[in-house]
Design a binder for these strands. Structure first.
Length: 548
DNA sequence: CTGGAAAGCGCC
DNA sequence: AAAGGGCGCTTTCCAG
């Protein structure tokens, strides 16, 4: 019943690199953070003296102050209840102290009371460390998650510079554009309605205008009005196209150009996200307040937003991203000779797949064939069925099934790997990444066909997505190590699943980009080479392109 | 007024 | 009715 909710419930506590937990926040709405044991006593007065945070923004400010004061102590941390609890059981419930107490301590009987926080943490440590060992998770915990936590804390504190005025200018421009489009939509629809309401839009499209097309999706309330549907309807009426454009612009404005300037820290002009390390089922990070892992990149309008993310004066931004990391992981885990050969030769992987599946020579693969192969490759990673493939490519179910069959014929190693990994998963009830991160999938043996199929897709995807997540975390640790060792002033700003974004002085461009490539590509010995693409520029759009 | 569900869509 | 994996944010809409 606290007036100011600081952090939405569904989220786990923010990542932090520490070992004992401290509560910060208004009464009833506290969020726990971990701090080194030695810092707890020292930190308490600091917090007690401060006014309780009124917002997420305030909260982060508190944390930054704490981290900068106790930053040195963070290095010695060797345990974290949140991270340990998460690795032992990455599913729900979130590894809060309360939940961990109920899951691991309360059932033991004995001391019935949770006790003080330090006592609770010590008790959890006694229980969780053996569980980590049992499941072969010690190295993942000590050598990956704990070091990453400290790096994330630094990244959150560093923040990223954003040109708020540029974003506001974009907002104004998009606002004018939206007004114009809105009027246009009313004319095309023959009446006014709320363009942002899918329900009202559905009435206009399907009741008023009586539009139709084949294969339209449905939602609970009737026909869907999503982009896919509007795309189909665009063939028979001008309104859907206009709506698609309206939605694209409205999304950019509300989610990015309107929202981001408000989160900029006035003193520094920087944006400080929160990374969540103990949340996703696959071991990826997530980012909130704001989410900086979904900044637009696809459309030109979107790239204008990205250009507002700028390097500090005298600095450059360096973006280093893994090329095709999940397919490379698939090549490694499956050991398929053809896939391995393609990556070792540095081939265009989608073109190679096209050649294999279509039985063409590589020089006969045109753009259309490559597009098809790309969809198939992604489909494999996500466990896509023939229906979806057919829909995606606009081909018949028969053709789609044929392509999938051909794919597995030409890449038998992949087929065998998927079969084997599924049957093993069914047997033991979980799948794992290369580094032993687990995901439990009881639904694999569900009598319910739908649920079982879903679990099977997850079982296929998780080792691929999760191993990629492990690898980039390892890369962060190595690159951070190199930066510290060389005493470079380069800063790691963001991790976006297969990309690291850094800010560095011009003078460090060569050494740091070389280090980024070296550490990221050398992160692990796999059956195939890992490849990193480097881009740099004055901003995150980094449109200067790559260079050799 | 607040909270939550649904729809939709941004990213990898 | 087409179920491809993983996320977070905004808007609408409805219930309390």
């Amino acid at each position: 019943m606290a007036p100011n909710r600081v952090v939405p419930k569904r989220r786990a506590a923010a990542s932090s690199a520490e070992s004992e937990r401290l509560k910060i926040g208004a009464e009833g709405e506290t969020e726990t953070y971990v701090l080194p044991a030695a810092s707890i006593a020292a930190a308490a007065p600091l917090l007690g003296a401060a006014t309780p945070p009124k917002s997420c923004h305030d909260l982060k400010e508190h944390l930054r102050r704490l981290k900068s004061r106790y930053g040195v102590a963070l290095a010695g941390v060797d345990f974290d209840t949140m991270l340990a609890g998460f690795l032992v059981n990455p599913g729900r419930p979130e590894p809060s102290l309360t939940n961990l107490y109920h899951d691991y301590l309360a059932p033991l009987g004995g001391n019935r009371e949770p006790g003080s926080e330090p006592e609770l943490i010590a008790a959890l440590r006694k229980v969780l460390m053996p569980k980590l060992a049992e499941n072969g998770l010690e190295s993942l915990f000590s050598d990956i998650e704990l070091p990453v936590a400290r790096i994330l804390a630094e990244m959150e504190e560093t923040g990223i510079a954003v040109d708020g005025e540029a974003l506001k200018a974009i907002s104004a421009e998009l606002g004018a554009k939206l007004e114009h489009m809105e009027r246009n939509c009313y004319l095309l629809a023959g009446r006014q309605f709320n363009l942002n309401s899918p329900i009202q839009l559905r009435q206009v499209l399907f009741d008023d205008l009586k539009l139709s097309a084949k294969g339209l999706k449905k939602t609970r309330g009737g026909f869907s009005t999503d982009a896919d549907t509007l795309e189909k309807l665009a063939a028979v009426h001008p309104l859907p196209r206009q709506l698609l454009e309206y939605r694209a612009i409205a999304k950019l404005k509300s989610t990015y150009s309107d929202a981001l300037p408000q989160l900029i820290e006035p003193a520094t002009g920087r944006l400080h996200t929160s990374f969540h390390q103990a949340l996703t089922a696959t071991g990826r990070l997530s980012s909130t307040d704001p989410n900086l892992q979904n900044i637009p990149t696809r459309t030109e309008e979107g790239r204008r937003i990205r250009r507002a993310f700028v390097a500090a004066p005298g600095c450059l931004m360096l973006s280093a991203d893994y090329s095709q990391i999940e397919l490379r992981v698939l090549a490694h885990l499956s050991g398929d000779p053809t896939l391995i050969d393609a990556f070792r030769r540095g081939e265009d992987i989608h073109a190679r797949t096209a050649a294999e599946v279509l039985g063409r020579r590589p020089d006969e693969v045109d753009a259309e064939a490559r597009r098809l192969a790309k969809v198939i490759n992604f489909g494999i990673i996500y466990g896509m069925g023939p229906q979806r493939l057919a829909g995606e490519l606009g081909i018949s179910l028969k053709e789609a099934s044929e392509y999938i069959k051909r794919y597995f014929e030409r890449l038998p190693g992949v087929h065998a790997y998927l079969e084997e990994s599924l049957s093993q998963a069914r047997e033991r009830g979980w799948v794992a990444t290369m580094y032993g991160r687990r995901r439990y999938l009881p639904e694999l043996n569900s009598p319910q066909g739908g649920a079982r199929a879903q679990a099977e897709r997850i079982a296929v995807n998780t080792p691929l997505q999760g191993t990629a997540a492990d690898l980039i975390k390892l890369a962060m640790i190595r690159l951070d190590g190199a930066i510290k060792e060389q005493k470079w002033s380069a800063r790691m700003l963001l991790q976006v699943h297969d990309e690291l974004l850094l800010e560095l002085p011009h003078a460090e461009r060569e050494p740091v980009s070389e280090a980024a490539r070296r550490e990221m590509e050398g992160v692990a010995e796999l059956r195939i080479p890992l490849k990193v693409e480097l881009k740099w520029g004055p901003n995150w759009a980094a449109l200067e392109g790559r260079r050799g």
